[in-house]
Amino acid sequence: MRVTRPDTAIARTSAPTAQVDAAPVVRMTGGTAELGGRPVLRGVDLKVFPGEVVALLGANGSGKSTAVRTLVGLVPLTGGRIELFGTPHGRFKDWARIGYVPQRTTAAAGVPASVREVVASGRLDRRRMFRLGRADRTAVDEALAAVGMLDRAGDGIAHLSGGQQQRVLIARALARRPDLLIMDEPMAGVDLASQEVLAETLRRQKQEGRAVLLVLHELGPLEPLIDRAVVLRDGCVCHDGVPPEALGQHALPGHDHVHPHADDHAHATPGLLT
């Protein structure tokens, strides 16, 4: 069951900066992939436009995490095609434009590392491997400030809470000043302050006309910031449009219900995540 989104929905649901005819930053067409011989993606179509915040939803094992991992090249496609910023995946070299926040329970490795060291590692790419200049330091400071961790820059990462470590991983991606920010389950096990940092990050990316694709288990408090939701079930897209209703978090205090509804989809997809 695949719901094809009418093109008008883009204009209705995305930020004012996005244009209907803007080229998508991500375009996956008929993407298939397998893990250990088991098909996980079975013909996924996915587009993300500039200035758009897209949530990739689905139950455990629906393939949502695998879908973003194919986009960033960590899982190979077995069929279909991916274009990033209009370039076929195989020829795409401009990884500096993509910020990736992997799904992690910890940001720490076997040796101590400071918050700043980890975030600074986000500045590297194929062309910039050796020295980090003043511009790099500024970008790192900005990213640290954006997640509220500038005053912890010199601290060891292993001493931070889970939510704070998640914020460091977000800062590491933001330090690239990415045109496309891809986050894999950034809400998993984070505290309230980190949720707020995440929401602020989404707002800012959107304001600057940059795109965000985030894998979420449920929309939760981020719901008002999501322009479009793509729901996967058994490796297929079963919904692509406004965020599906009735995900349980709407009753939260402080939740203002401002996003526009496209009624044709909202009621067609009850209980998608169960």
Binding site: G73, P102, A107, A109, G122, M129
Partner: peptide, 23 residues
């Protein structure tokens, strides 16, 4: 010592390093 930045990045988080485009 000369390649400490890319080596740090790869050893800290290999998957992230792949997505940065580092070799």
């Amino acid at each position: 010592i000369g390649l400490r930045r890319p080596l740090f990045t790869v050893c800290q988080d290999e998957e992230f390093a792949r997505v940065t485009g580092l070799p």
